Computed example of a mutant assay.
Amino acid sequence: MYKHILVPVAFDDDHDPAAALEATRKLAAPDAQVTLVHVMADVPGYAISYMPPGYSDELKRTLQASLDKLAEGFDNARGVLREGSPANEILALAEESGADCIVIASHRPGFGDYLIGSTAARVVRHAHCSVLVLR
């Protein structure tokens, strides 16, 4: 059983965090810390000018509220919102927080994933802890 599990969560139509959250419940020690993380990809500079004022702040508040709501399903959990490259931020947070397991969902790879690698694949290759990949 793991004492600190990191669970990356994507908020889009293609990802449902239910399976990852259920796996986390099964893998967690009774007093385990669970960290739910969402990584916001950097918005390209040319796109910023098309965003309404306050868009980024409102998006961050909404995403954090969604993470906090998911965290309520665990006794000892927190939601963390990061910005940057998803794989890099997940790996950095795992190191910073001392996570001993990462539970991450994967999707069927597309052509682009074969060239640059999916987030889950990069996490598996570079993590310094156990990684459970869900399909």
Rank of each mutant, 00 (worst) to 15 (best):
E72L: 13
D42P: 06
V43R: 01
I102E: 07
D16R: 01
L27T: 08
D57Q: 13
V80H: 05
H38Q: 09
S49M: 08
D13N: 01
S106D: 07
G112E: 05
V80S: 08
S66V: 04
H38A: 06
D31S: 12
R108P: 08
A92I: 00
T35K: 08
E96G: 01
P52Y: 07
A99G: 02
L36P: 01
I104Y: 00
S49R: 09
K60T: 00
L115N: 12
I102P: 03
S56W: 11
D14M: 12
G112C: 00
R108V: 02
S118A: 09
D68Q: 12
G73T: 10
P53W: 12
D113Q: 11
A20T: 06
I90R: 11
V80N: 09
A32V: 07
L59R: 09
Y55H: 13
E89M: 05
P44E: 04
D31C: 05
L27K: 00
H15D: 09
P52M: 05
I104D: 01
S106Y: 12
F74P: 00
R82A: 15
M51V: 04
S106E: 04
G79D: 01
S118G: 07
A28Q: 06
A87L: 05
I104W: 01
E22H: 12
G117I: 10
E58T: 08
D68F: 04
D31A: 15
S66R: 15
D100E: 02
R82D: 08
N76A: 14
D42V: 08
S118V: 07
S106T: 04
D12Q: 04
L91A: 02
G117E: 09
P86G: 05
M51D: 04
A41M: 15
K26S: 12
L27Y: 08
L93C: 05
G117S: 12
A99V: 10
D31L: 12
T62E: 15
C101Q: 00
A18Y: 01
S49G: 02
C101Y: 03
G98Y: 13
C101N: 10
I90Y: 06
G54E: 08
A41Q: 14
A92K: 07
N88M: 11
T62L: 14
G117P: 05
L91P: 09
P53L: 14
F11T: 00
G54H: 11
P17W: 03
P53K: 14
L27P: 06
Y50T: 11
M51C: 10
G110Y: 12
C101E: 03
G73Q: 14
L21E: 07
G117W: 00
T62N: 15
I90K: 06
E58R: 15
S49K: 03
H38K: 06
L36F: 02
R61G: 09
S85D: 13
L91I: 06
D68P: 08
A87H: 05
P52C: 01
V43T: 13
E72Q: 13
F74H: 10
Y114T: 09
D68V: 03
G110S: 15
I48Q: 11
